[in-house]
């Protein structure tokens, strides 16, 4: 469990990135911080592994104040995946994945064997192990990034817009992969994104942020969709534009779903067919 208690962060240039933020992130669940740029979501994420230290307030992991922990050691115990994968360009895929275990003193041979099996876990072919990051596609690089994040078998996995830089098809693929992984591993995942669809897809708990890290609403995706706390949230999730309020129209022999603007949103199909669509969220 990660707990923010009245956390604020003012940067040296005077910007108040986070203002009195309090939140509990339950263990073994995915919490998604979603907001536009300037909402302080990345700052919040980076406070968890002390890449950023709060100006005031405390953050606890399982009851222990992280301010008392040594930053380097703390970071080695937490998985971190970032947007541009951040892989070391001069190290092979396998060495990138094994970086942190090696830092923690795991013998080289063992670290490599484990890294290889992590490639399987994230759905990468082992033949890519000896390649350099620049020889991989963007999607493959992100998978390596995830494997690296998992390498120390951390309880906590921090993900900073990990799928932000890949094309929509690959992104959908990676999202499904993450859902599968999470159903197997059950990590405490903290995920940052500006994409509300992604937040609803991945999050058990979704936190919608306004400027300065102020919470607009916290809840499950369905809570938020059903009962947006205010106009800001409604606009953020698209409910105000009628994007989320669909009705059925009969056209050309099919049931078509249409939003309030008259834009086509999809077709109505039988529940069994819906189960088979890849978009369906695996129960956890």
């Amino acid at each position: 469990m990660i707990e923010f208690r009245s956390v604020s962060k003012q940067f040296p240039d005077g910007t108040l990135a986070v203002d009195d933020f309090s939140l509990t992130l339950p263990s073994h669940q995915t919490t998604v911080l979603v907001g536009s740029s300037g909402s302080g979501k990345t700052t919040l994420l980076r406070m968890i592994n002390r890449m950023v230290d709060p100006s005031s307030g405390t953050i606890e992991i399982d009851g222990a104040d992280i301010a008392a922990l040594e930053p380097v050691q703390l970071r080695r115990s937490i998985g971190y995946v970032m947007q541009n994968s951040g892989l070391l360009p001069h190290r092979t895929v396998i060495d990138n994945v094994a970086t942190v275990p090696l830092l923690r003193g795991v013998p080289r041979r063992k670290a490599r064997t484990e890294a290889l099996s992590l490639l399987d876990t994230v759905g990468l072919d082992r033949s890519l192990a000896a390649r350099y990051p620049n020889q991989l596609s963007g999607g493959q690089q992100q998978r390596v990034g995830v494997a690296r994040g998992l390498a120390v078998n951390p309880n906590i996995l921090l993900m900073d817009e990990p799928f932000g830089a890949v094309d929509p098809i690959v992104r959908a693929e990676l999202q499904q992969e993450l859902i599968r992984l999470q159903s197997e591993l059950g990590k405490t995942v903290v995920f940052v994104t500006h994409d509300i669809e992604e937040a609803f897809l991945l999050g058990d708990q979704v936190v919608i942020l306004r400027d300065g890290g102020r919470i607009a609403q916290v809840g499950s995706p369905s809570d938020i969709l059903a009962k947006p706390a205010d106009d800001f949230v409604a606009s953020f999730v698209g409910a105000d534009r009628g994007k989320r309020a669909l009705h059925v129209e009969r056209r050309g022999g099919s049931d078509i779903l249409v939003d309030t603007d008259g834009r086509l949103a999809g077709v109505l199909v039988a529940p069994s067919a819906a189960d088979a669509t890849p978009d369906h969220r695996a129960p956890r």
Binding site: R46, N49, M51, V72, Q73, L74, R75, R76, S77, Y80, M82, Q83, N84, S85, G86, L87, L88, P89, T99, V100, L103, R148, G149, L158
Partner: peptide, 20 residues
Amino acid sequence: TVIDSARSVGMSEAQIMRTV
């Protein structure tokens, strides 16, 4: 971002310098 990520996965400043 390479250096930032090296720091985020837990490299010390000396390690960042030496290995990155």
